[in-house]
C-alpha cells in the first residue's frame, strides 16, 4: 500500500507548553487508522496541524510526497483532504441539503458567482450524497433542528463531497448512542473499502476503535507511545497504564 500522508517530528507549543512533542507517523492508502489517548494528550492539536487550522511550531507534513506544512485549510482541502470536527460546524442558517450544496459549490469553484439562486445548484448531486448517509428524508429540514447523530452524518456527507483521498475525523461518534456509533463507523468502513479512501480518526469509544481500526496509534502528553495493530496496542503495558486501565473496578473498562 502506498503512503498517502506522512508527519515528521511534528511539534506545537503554546506559550512554553509543549502540546505536541515530536510526533511522526504515516497513513497508507485504503487504511482506517485510529489515534487514541487521554483528553488533552494533543490529538486535536495534531489533527489541526495536519489540516492547516494550526501552524506547527516544527516538523513537516507531506501529502503524497507534496509538502503541505502550514498551508491554510482551504488549500489542503482542495488537495483532497476532508475533515470533520469534534464539535460539528455545520451552517445553522441553512437546510440540510444546502449545507451539502455549499460544499459542492465550493468544490466546483463557484463561490464568487452572483447570478443563480444557490439552492438550485447541484441539488441532485447533493441528494445523492445525503442518500449515502441515509439523510435524504431530512434534506429540506433546517439544520438547526437535526439530532446530534444526524449532524455527525451530515458532516460526513459534506466531507465526502469533493471525493477526498484522505479523511480526518475528530471524534466522529462522540455523543452518539452505542448502536448508532457502530452503524456510523460501519458506514465509514464501507466507504473506505468501496472508494479506496484513507481515514484517520480519533475516538474515545474503545469498542469502535478495536472493531474498525486497521492500525492504532496512542498519544500521551504530546508523544506517540504506540503505533501498531489492535492486538499489539491492547497488550502494550504502557498503553494500559496511561490509557486503557487495568479494568480492576469493572470489567470491560472503557466501553463508554
Amino acid at each position: 500500500m502506498t503512503e498517502i500522508l506522512r508527519a515528521d517530528n511534528l511539534r506545537k507549543s503554546y506559550d512554553g507548553f509543549l502540546a505536541v512533542d515530536g510526533v511522526s507517523f504515516s497513513v497508507r492508502q485504503g487504511e482506517l487508522k485510529a489515534l487514541i489517548g487521554p483528553n488533552g494528550a494533543g490529538k486535536s492539536t495534531c489533527f489541526n496541524m495536519l489540516t492547516g487550522q494550526l501552524k506547527p511550531s516544527g516538523g513537516e507534513v507531506h501529502l503524497e510526497g507534496t509538502r503541505i506544512t502550514g498551508r491554510p485549510p482551504r488549500e489542503i482541502w482542495r488537495m483532497g483532504v476532508g475533515r470533520t470536527f469534534q464539535i460539528t460546524g455545520t451552517y445553522r442558517s441553512m437546510s440540510v441539503i444546502e449545507n451539502v450544496q455549499m460544499a459542492l459549490i465550493s468544490h466546483h469553484r463557484r463561490i464568487f458567482t452572483f447570478g443563480p439562486r444557490a439552492w438550485k445548484l447541484y441539488r441532485d448531486q447533493a441528494l445523492e450524497f445525503l442518500r449515502t448517509v441515509s439523510l435524504e428524508d431530512q434534506a429540506d429540514r433546517p439544520c438547526s433542528v437535526l439530532a446530534y447523530g444526524d449532524l455527525k452524518r451530515l458532516e460526513l456527507a459534506i466531507a465526502l463531497c469533493h471525493r477526498p483521498r484522505l479523511l480526518l475525523m475528530d471524534e466522529p461518534t462522540a455523543g452518539m448512542a452505542p448502536a448508532a456509533r457502530i452503524e456510523l463507523m460501519q458506514l465509514v468502513a464501507d466507504i473506505v473499502r468501496e472508494q479506496g479512501l484513507s481515514v484517520l480518526f480519533t475516538e474515545h469509544d474503545m469498542d469502535v476503535v478495536f472493531a474498525h481500526a486497521h492500525h492504532i496509534m496512542v498519544l500521551n502528553r504530546g508523544a506517540l507511545i504506540a503505533d501498531g495493530s489492535a492486538d499489539e496496542v491492547r497488550r502494550d503495558p504502557r498503553v494500559q497504564e496511561v490509557y486503557l486501565g487495568g479494568g480492576t473496578l469493572f470489567k470491560e473498562a472503557g466501553d463508554a
Binding site: W77, M94, E98, M102, A103, G115
Partner: peptide
C-alpha cells in the same frame, strides 16, 4: 446577492468560519 452562491458563502463564513475554511472557502 444574498440568495446567490456568493451570499451563501458569506453566510457560511458567518455560521462557522472554521467549517467554511475547511471547505475551500476563503
Amino acid at each position: 446577492v444574498i440568495h446567490s452562491p456568493f451570499g451563501y458563502a458569506l453566510r457560511a463564513g458567518r455560521d462557522s468560519p472554521r467549517q467554511a475554511e475547511a471547505m475551500g472557502i476563503d
